[in-house]
């Protein structure tokens, strides 16, 4: 009876809980840091959260890696924007990429402010979002697909099978599509301008990128007959 109780209450007796940061076998290839070094928590708010949940006690004796050179605790820092800058970047020209994204944010601000001043009633003015960062977040969120098609081979024939998409992948696709849409333009239009338009459109759930997402959803819907190939 007692041993039965243990099986029910003492999880430890058959589940080996191994903490990944203590894994001693070096699995990090050429990394300069030993494997038990943890990622830095460089934002003040994130640290306060850790403190509230009491998890900070766990890392008091664990060494941290150095913060990367695009990470700061500044209020202007945004992880998603940083990621977006990295996706825009080509051939390691980070300064250029950052400049382009900042320029497009400036354009968004100008466009929205213009709209704001043209609006007549107070209610209309309230409805207009002016903060480019919020618009950006909204746009990325609106363009995230829920499903995507993956080729699976059954009986020598490749079927496009709809499968649920991991969050990280859908975020990547959303940003990639936004950038692709912004690069499809006439030679006279500059990238930041086009990106600003695309972001504003996507934030209001219209435009090329949202259409692309809906197309993908439609295709998934059309291929729903193959969905069972995912597991059989």
């Amino acid at each position: 009876m007692a041993s039965l109780k243990r099986i029910f209450f003492g999880k430890h007796s058959f589940i080996n809980q191994r903490n990944s940061i203590y894994s001693l076998i070096q699995q990090n290839g050429m990394s300069q840091y030993p494997s038990y070094y943890i990622q830095p928590v460089y934002r003040k708010e994130a640290q306060e959260e850790l403190e509230k949940s009491g998890e900070i006690m766990k890392i008091t004796h664990v060494p941290t890696r150095a913060a990367l050179n695009d990470q700061t605790s500044s209020v202007y820092q945004d992880e998603l924007v940083n990621l977006f800058i990295n996706y825009v970047m080509r051939d390691g020209l980070k300064t250029l990429a950052r400049g382009l994204v900042e320029k497009s944010f400036e354009n968004i601000k100008r466009i929205q402010l213009e709209k704001y001043h043209k609006a007549k009633t107070e209610a209309e003015k309230q409805a207009i979002e002016i903060n480019p960062k919020n618009i950006f977040h909204q746009a990325v969120n609106n363009c995230k697909p829920l499903l995507y098609l993956t080729p699976i081979k059954r009986g020598g024939v490749k079927y496009q099978v709809p499968v649920p998409i991991p969050d990280k992948r859908s975020q990547f696709l959303s940003m990639k599509w936004l950038i692709e849409a912004a690069r499809e333009k006439e030679r006279t239009v500059h990238f930041p301008e086009k990106l600003a338009y695309e972001l504003i459109d996507a934030a209001s759930n219209t435009g090329k990128v949202v259409k692309r997402k809906l197309d993908l959803h439609k295709q998934c819907e059309a291929n729903r007959a193959y969905a069972h190939y995912r597991w059989s």
Partner: peptide, 18 residues
């Protein structure tokens, strides 16, 4: 100092060009 350490400010970054 401790929170600076957790923020990764006190770790010397030894990574160099490969």
């Amino acid at each position: 100092i401790e929170s600076m350490r957790i923020a990764g400010l006190l770790t010397r970054d030894y990574r160099t060009r490969e």
